[in-house]
Design a binder for these strands. Structure first.
Lengths: 152, 152
DNA sequence: GTAAACCTTGTAGCAACTACAGCTTCAAGC
DNA sequence: GCTTGAAGCTGTAGTTGCTACAAGGTTTAC
């Protein structure tokens, strides 16, 4: 059932999943995609299943799931009879991270807003922005930023 | 005026700015911190000015400013006579990024929340989470996620 | 039959650190 | 003055998730 219809080139696959051939090869290398069938000349050829799988991966990455999480999700979706507790756990964990990040980012926005509005446009000497960055004490929201790191 | 009071070791400096010695050496290497005075045996010794500078850097990084932005901010704060227009521009630009990111992250949270709540806890086969990730059509908020990339 | 467009592998680069390994120096106690 | 253990040194490699070459080989359309 999988011998026929392997006619999609890597470029077409990439286009259909909205990414680049390099990314596809990368996913193959790290084992997210299975090794593709090859033409006599050694080029990769894919079927529709690969399009679905890659689309899943890209979409999950878009959602902010780490590659390791995607790997787990794929493993689970490969076993449809299994209970989806673990799937739920991964998604819930991810949701928690997103929420915490959202809180910190939102505090950061307030601080930046405050900084920008308070800066009178004078000399650096009296610039609130530099002051706020220099002096943590001036922060309204303590322990609230720390914000540009990756989600798990 | 800067020959005296160079008595802080790299470890102490790192502790006082809440980072690691490796990070300090890294900042020196990329030119965010000036080369430190050395003891006869070659160890780095710092003064209070270094503590302030490193604290500024860490704080700005914490705020989500990229190292390149921090570099610009440092260059500006080193020249107190300069107008703070540029500082303001960087902060405003940053604010814009934070806001756009906040929107995307917030949409992402909704999607994840929806996924998690709709998951009935049955088999993977019928798992809403897997379904939503598989099928872009099922997304409520189009083009809204894509969320874990760095702020400029 | 040829040319363009595509594909191949392998390697190096990005950000912003972090983590060794293998050695040297410093500071404190005795 | 000596020992000992913590801390410091350099240099290099690893992290994450790709992206971008270089130097060739293959396909396909005309």
């Amino acid at each position: 059932m999988s011998m026929m219809g392997q006619s999609i080139s890597i470029g077409e696959l990439a286009r259909r999943a909205d990414c680049k051939p390099e990314t596809v090869r990368y996913y193959e290398r790290i084992g997210l995609l299975r090794d593709a069938t090859r033409t006599g000349g050694g080029q990769r050829r894919y079927g529709e299943d690969a399009v679905r799988r890659l689309t899943f991966i890209r979409h999950a990455r878009d959602f902010g799931f780490s590659v390791e999480s995607v790997r787990e999700l794929l493993a689970m979706s490969d076993q449809p009879d299994m209970s989806c507790q673990e799937v739920d756990a991964i998604a819930t964990h991810h949701l928690k991270k997103v929420e915490s990040r959202l809180r910190r980012l939102s505090a950061l926005r307030e601080e930046l807003q405050r900084m920008v509005t308070q800066c009178a446009g004078g000399k650096v000497e009296s610039c609130r922005i530099i002051e706020v960055i220099s002096d943590h004490q001036l922060c309204v929201t303590e322990n609230s930023h720390g914000g540009a790191h990756d989600l798990g």
